[in-house]
C-alpha cells in the first residue's frame, strides 16, 4: 500500500515536472503578470492546419515580444472545447480575445460570454461578411481568390467554354465554402460544366489529399474524356487531384489550389498539372490585426470599421520562385 502511494506521488511529481518543462511559460508574461499586463486569450480550432498553426504561433510570439500575456487555446476543429476553454479564460479575466480562423456559426457561447464581460474579439478570417460579434475581422477577398484561380484554370484549359471542371470544396470551412460557390458561379458563367453536377465535398481537411486523389481517380475511371480541369478550394486537396491526374498519365487536365503552401509551390514548379494557387497574405493580415490590438492595448480605442478584406496574389509558374510558402 505504501509502495503504491509512493508510486502515485512519484508519478504525480514526474508529471508536474514534465508539464512544466513542456509548457511555453511566456517568459516575462508568465505567472499572471502585473495589473498593467495586457492579457490576451487567443484561440483557433484550425491549429492542425499549416496556416492556422503558423499564424497563431506568430501571434503568440509577437504578442509576448510586446510584453502581453498571451494564452493560446487550440483544438482540432472541436468548437465545443474552444467554447469551454474560452469561457473559462473570460471568467478568469482577459483584456482581449484573438479569434484565429473561427467559424462564427460555432462560437456563439464564447461570444455571448465575451460580450457580457465587455471583452472585444479581434478576428483573423472570421467569415466573408461583416459580423457584429467581432470588433474587427480582417480577412482575404474571397471574390478575388475565386476570380484569380478560375482565371488561371481557364487560361490553362484554353478557355472555359465547353469544359468540364470538377470543383472540390469543404463546406464546414466558411472561406472555402464561399470561394467554392463563387468559383462554380464563375465557371458556369464562362460556359463550363461542373463535373458530377455539384461540388465534391472533402470530409476532413487533414486527409484531403488522399480524398481528392480518390475523387479524381474514380471520376476519371468513369469519365476518361469528361474532365478538363479541377478547381480546388485549398492546396492539400489540390495536390491529391494533381497526383491522380499524373497517375492516370494525363497531361491535358489542369488543377488550381489556394493557400500557397510549400508542397503546392513545389508541384507548380514541377510543370505538372498543378498550374496555379493563390497566396493569401496572412502575415499582412496578422500585421493589421496586431496593429488594431496594440492601439486597443495602449489607448482602449477600437477599430473604426469591423470588416477588412485584404488583397490576394496569384501564384503560377511565372512567379512561383519568388513566393515564400505560407506554412514555412
Amino acid at each position: 500500500m505504501r509502495r503504491r502511494f509512493a508510486t502515485v506521488v512519484g508519478l504525480g511529481v514526474a508529471s508536474a515536472l514534465v508539464l512544466s518543462a513542456c509548457s511555453d511559460s511566456g517568459g516575462d508574461g508568465g505567472g499572471g503578470g502585473g495589473d498593467d499586463t495586457f492579457r490576451v486569450a487567443a484561440f483557433t480550432a484550425g491549429y492542425g492546419t499549416p496556416v492556422g498553426k503558423s499564424t497563431l504561433d506568430a501571434f503568440v510570439e509577437r504578442g509576448e515580444e510586446l510584453g502581453w500575456d498571451v494564452t493560446l487555446y487550440t483544438s482540432d476543429f472541436d468548437y465545443d472545447k474552444i467554447n469551454t476553454d474560452m469561457q473559462s479564460a473570460i471568467t478568469q479575466g482577459v483584456d482581449a480575445i484573438l479569434a484565429g480562423y473561427p467559424d462564427p456559426r460555432q462560437i456563439q457561447p464564447m461570444v455571448a460570454a465575451a460580450q457580457e464581460a465587455d471583452i472585444p474579439i479581434f478576428s483573423i478570417d472570421g467569415g466573408v461578411e461583416p459580423n457584429e460579434d467581432f470588433v474587427v475581422d480582417v480577412t482575404t477577398d474571397q471574390d478575388q481568390i475565386a476570380e484569380l484561380s478560375v482565371g488561371a484554370l481557364g487560361e490553362a484549359m484554353g478557355g472555359l467554354e465547353g469544359k468540364d471542371v470538377m470543383v472540390i470544396g469543404h463546406d464546414p470551412h466558411v472561406g472555402i465554402s464561399t470561394r467554392s460557390r463563387l468559383a462554380v458561379e464563375m465557371l458556369e458563367e464562362g460556359g463550363a460544366t461542373i463535373a458530377g453536377g455539384e461540388i465534391r465535398q472533402v470530409l476532413a481537411p487533414g486527409t484531403s489529399q488522399e480524398e481528392a486523389l480518390k475523387f479524381v481517380t474514380d471520376y476519371l475511371q468513369a469519365n476518361p474524356e469528361g474532365l478538363d480541369g479541377v478547381w480546388v478550394g485549398w492546396d492539400h486537396a489540390a495536390v491529391g487531384a494533381a497526383q491522380a491526374i499524373e497517375e492516370a498519365g494525363r497531361d491535358d487536365i489542369f488543377v488550381t489550389g489556394v493557400d500557397a503552401v510549400g508542397i503546392a509551390l513545389a508541384e507548380i514548379e514541377k510543370n505538372g498539372p498543378f498550374v496555379a494557387t493563390v497566396v493569401q497574405d496572412w502575415p499582412a493580415v496578422l500585421d493589421e490585426v496586431m496593429g488594431y490590438m496594440e492601439t486597443f492595448a495602449d489607448s482602449g480605442e477600437l477599430p473604426e470599421e469591423n470588416f477588412v478584406e485584404t488583397e490576394v496574389t496569384l501564384v503560377d509558374r511565372n512567379n512561383v520562385a519568388d513566393v515564400e510558402p505560407t506554412d514555412a
Partner: peptide
C-alpha cells in the same frame, strides 16, 4: 506506405 503513396506526411494523414 501511405506517406510514400502521397509523397507527403501530415499530422493526421492516416487517422481515419
Amino acid at each position: 506506405i501511405l506517406v510514400s503513396r502521397l509523397a507527403s506526411a501530415s499530422a493526421t494523414s492516416a487517422n481515419n
